[in-house]
Design a protein around this nucleic acid. Structure first.
Lengths: 364, 364
DNA sequence: TTGAAAGCGCTAACAC
DNA sequence: GTGTTAGCGCTTTCAA
């Protein structure tokens, strides 16, 4: 609990120099067995525990990777504060069967991949993040303590990222949007959405499709939208020029979108959502308004989060290899740190269409 | 990517001392506005990013908590290497609907709680762990870099824990088993299992109940067993003296247990498992052998992991407030670090019986 | 309000 | 094989 013993204490007790103490732990073979034992005994007796900070400082590396998962998207969406997007604590006494909407999300599965790869290579993972309700940690605090940093898009201001990337490798888990000097890990968004859209058209005969996305979509969502458009064009169907969203001024929420779609009086045959977290509450909102899903309108997602399987009807989606993405990101960071000369990498992983009930397919 | 600028560089460019640079960032009000601006400008120009290690070393604190989630239980269980317990990578190309067995588990939900509380209080979380397949990180490496450490039971040798606890607060997420000097966060295991067992007896009329647990159960499991026994005793039913397990010599696995139960020819009415991760593969194994669950035999778990809801039949269990446990652990660590005089805390949280299909209740 | 200087605990040359 | 001795980059008295 208090100030612990240091190399000096151990050295003194063992009757050797501090260098020998250090060697004993880092390069045991370079130390004579008898002295090694003496040092170990002294360390044992004193409850010696080396300071990670001091080691990191002296060695110029920390043996840790960092990940920052603050979710700006939902942060910007006060209207969803009680919905799926909120990364806050589940309200006490809430339905123990309903909290799967909050965890695990996309970021959590990716993070797990990062952690696994870290451990495999002997690194630890430092995670920072938060949101409006939980509070947050500063990225600077974590950037200063790790050998590499993984971030989700729209999580940290670009200037800050490029600042950090001048010191340690940084990988962003998204399509490279602007010409940054960061590494990137992403998936084939366009192809995935194209395949899914084509399925809706050919297997379910849908003709009137819309793409639903948050009002301010980022690059990955844009690519998904392009894939959607391309599939419609190829099928000779009308191609929406832009995604449907919650209407200006209206609060950004599934409720608002559902209401808008119904008020317009022109509900499409299918609503292709930019991602699962957008589709799930939308399905709820439609159902609540008496709209049959998928009977009247099919709704699909993108990501493949666990909640989609617990949803009724089960969510048809495009699954990202989240764990693999995390692993890849970690691998890039570690390699990038150990060989400072590597140029920015950009890796794209494949996706997989997962057919479940919400598009009209039979239950699995 | 390379060695970044330091306080010295910034100080030189701004024409001040390093102390002033430090003050500018940590106690801005103590610095005259004009000099503050000069320092900030210099820092900006140089892409200055403070070193977390150096700060930690100088201040004697790191602003990070640690959690170690290496899972010894499954580690010791080679037979489950392809099963639910393995915390390895999901095999490539595997059924995208089947990996929920691997993530999120109990430890992941607790960890999330720890992370949330860390962020709320301005801390970061360093996670270490691993298993036989993924490799692992040494706890010493993480202990040396954090202000407090949370560990799951049987994850780290006790000697190591008490060594670490002499320097920083340590909370173990289990019943205090031996007289250690650690903090503890746990749940009312006995009451939970008692309530569940009573439900099986009174609501479903089961009379012949067995308790299934891994061969080497730890203290929490023992308490659950006691709760189970107490409920039987109160109902005037036969009370097993010990849990059923996989039989000596046999590989520890659900398959082995199922085979043993059937071979014995005396399948009970209900099998109360020590935790969900034990119940899930057991249900699979029974079903595979043509045994109807819950028709012929009811099977229940403990924990309330997500996989239990995706299981068919859905798993009846006792839910632990995992997020809350994590939050509590983090709070104890932070308080314990900030006030080194606090004695070891031991907090017990309530649990909740969750009735689903596997005990014979109707689907939710 | 700012500067000088002494650490924080460890690593890694470089000598012996 | 072991000791000496610089740092690593920042915080923090204590003086000025």
């Amino acid at each position: 609990m208090v100030k612990g013993p240091t190399v000096y204490d151990v050295a003194e007790l063992a009757g050797v120099s501090i260098a020998t103490v250090s060697f004993t732990f880092r390069q045991p073979h370079r130390v004579r067995q008898s002295t090694r034992e003496a040092v170990l005994a002294a360390a044992q007796a004193l409850n010696y525990l080396p300071s990670g900070n001091a080691r990191g400082l002296a060695r110029g590396r920390t043996g840790a990777l960092g990940i920052y998962s603050f979710d700006f998207y939902f942060l910007d969406d006060p209207a969803s504060a009680g919905g799926a997007g909120t990364r806050a604590a589940a309200p006490a006494g809430s339905d123990p069967n309903a909290d799967y909407r909050v965890f695990p999300l996309y970021v959590d599965e990716v993070q797990r991949g990062v952690a696994l790869e870290c451990w495999r290579r002997g690194y630890t993972l430092m995670v920072g993040g938060g949101n409006r309700t939980t509070g947050r940690t500063a990225i600077a605090d974590i950037a200063g303590q790790v050998d590499g940093l993984a971030v989700f898009p729209r999580t940290v201001p670009v200037e800050v990222l490029s600042l950090i990337s001048r010191r340690i490798p940084v990988v962003e888990l998204s399509e490279p949007s602007h010409d940054d000097s960061l590494h990137h890990v992403t998936v084939d968004n366009a192809a995935g959405m194209h395949a899914l859209t084509t399925h809706l058209i050919t297997a379910h005969g849908l003709r009137d499709l819309q793409f639903a996305a948050p009002r301010d979509p980022w690059s990955d969502f844009q690519l998904r939208f392009r894939g959607f458009q391309a599939a419609l064009a190829e099928a000779g169907l009308p191609v929406p020029e832009r995604p449907v969203t919650e209407g200006d001024g209206a609060p950004q929420s599934a409720e608002a979108l559902a209401a808008a779609l119904l008020a317009g009086g022109r509900l499409p045959d299918g609503i292709v959502c930019a991602h699962d977290e957008y589709a799930l509450p939308l399905i709820d909102a439609l159902l609540r308004r008496g709209v049959d899903v998928p009977g009247r309108v099919a709704v699909t997602g993108f990501d493949g989060i666990v909640a989609g399987r617990l949803q009724r009807p089960q969510l048809t989606t495009v699954r990202q290899p989240m764990e693999q993405m995390g692993r890849t990101a970690a691998a890039i960071l570690i390699d990038g740190f150990e060989d400072r000369t590597l140029p920015p990498q950009s890796r794209q992983l494949p996706v997989e269409v997962v057919l479940r009930e919400s598009c009209g397919c039979p239950p699995a």
